[in-house]
Design a protein around this nucleic acid. Sequence first.
DNA 1: GGCGCTTGTGTGACTAGGTCACTGATCGCG
DNA 2: CGCGATCAGTGACCTAGTCACACAAGCGCC
Lengths: 223, 223
Amino acid sequence: MTALAKSDDWIDRFEGLSKLEPGLRNVLTTRSHVVRLPADSVIFGPGKSPDNLLLLLQGTVRVQQLAENGREVVLYRVTAGESCVLTTACMLAYEDYAAEGIAETDIVAAAIPRGVFDDLVASSKEFRNFVFRAYSRRITDLFHVIEDIAFRRMDIRLAQKIIERADTGVLKATHAQLAAELGTAREVISRQLAEFQRRGWIAQSRGVIEILDCEGLRALAQS
Amino acid sequence: MTALAKSDDWIDRFEGLSKLEPGLRNVLTTRSHVVRLPADSVIFGPGKSPDNLLLLLQGTVRVQQLAENGREVVLYRVTAGESCVLTTACMLAYEDYAAEGIAETDIVAAAIPRGVFDDLVASSKEFRNFVFRAYSRRITDLFHVIEDIAFRRMDIRLAQKIIERADTGVLKATHAQLAAELGTAREVISRQLAEFQRRGWIAQSRGVIEILDCEGLRALAQS
DNA sequence: GGCGCTTGTGTGACTAGGTCACTGATCGCG
DNA sequence: CGCGATCAGTGACCTAGTCACACAAGCGCC
């Protein structure tokens, strides 16, 4: 861990923090530290509550819910320029949750210790707004997850996911990963993808989905 | 709306606020107001964002998610002695959520205006802890809802709900209400209840479920 | 009382989604 | 090349959600 004293321009990358008072910028750069973690690190999870608020500078963190039977759902992702605020709430009390945060890529983050977080919340209206806005965003995400799982059809959700996560027409993911993403079973994904393939929308090979007809997918996704 | 200047003992009913500094107790009692709302009032919802933080003194508020097709799920309930914190997050930004809060009974609450909330967060560590603890609790609730919907069987969830919400062995609720509670369809509830009845666990009449064999239900509920 | 209206419940047929127990395919690697 | 590990496909079966009804209970009102 190294202090961030050298520069404070990273702060501006966080929506809502650019107008932070100069003195407090200093607090952030001198009292928070850079952490670097390799992909697949467990940032927090059952029995591992974080004691820093992370502001992500590079990489993405996937937050997912685990069930006893081994199934999982992805709740949301934290990307560069965002903060892992929900962990601040979870730092205190109510430890019995089964969500975990995992680095999806190598990540670089500014770690703000609990005490500094508290000071900043106390002393800066800017920072308070930043925190509550971040909460708002995450909670809205959770609402959407609930709506999706409870009320939307799998084929539609899968089509959306493919479009959303494909990079230049190609998505590298196994059926099992997509199932975990959507909170369903592997077989369900396999069958849906087989159907997409039958319709000529995609081509498949081990661990790879190639989009052939984006329009077809898109039409399904927004119905 | 009337100011609360006369007494401040209600503050102690909120876990985490009892050690609030005397000066700030004053702020709460003089700058917040009592609101009384009849059962079924919509506290907040799409297009109706609240501009007060409510601390519930009496009654309960049900927060539920609505879907286009008319179905709904109950996300959590706020009871006397708790606060409606998630609304503070939702007060700002990200207005596109489809959750609404409804008074389940006649309610009495202390309404803390946005500015006062902000002042208190700034000036009191006690109050900050109160707020973040409340967030923590709600978010944990949401995690549980997601886990339930995604991974648990309906019969188990229904048995739990019946036990949880029954009062002296009797639950007054229509099948449609229970369906909305659990985010499923009315027919599903009807069929499950028919099965519970066949097993001698409950008796039914219009709008009423009577528990006959609590052990049977309980055994199912915790499996 | 008999009449309609509203609300709540029961049912059958069907589709979608999840589970189980497999088989076969593909890959990396010694 | 052979072997183990991972990934994908499949059929049978069960649970859950949808649709289109019929039926029943309560309620007001001539």
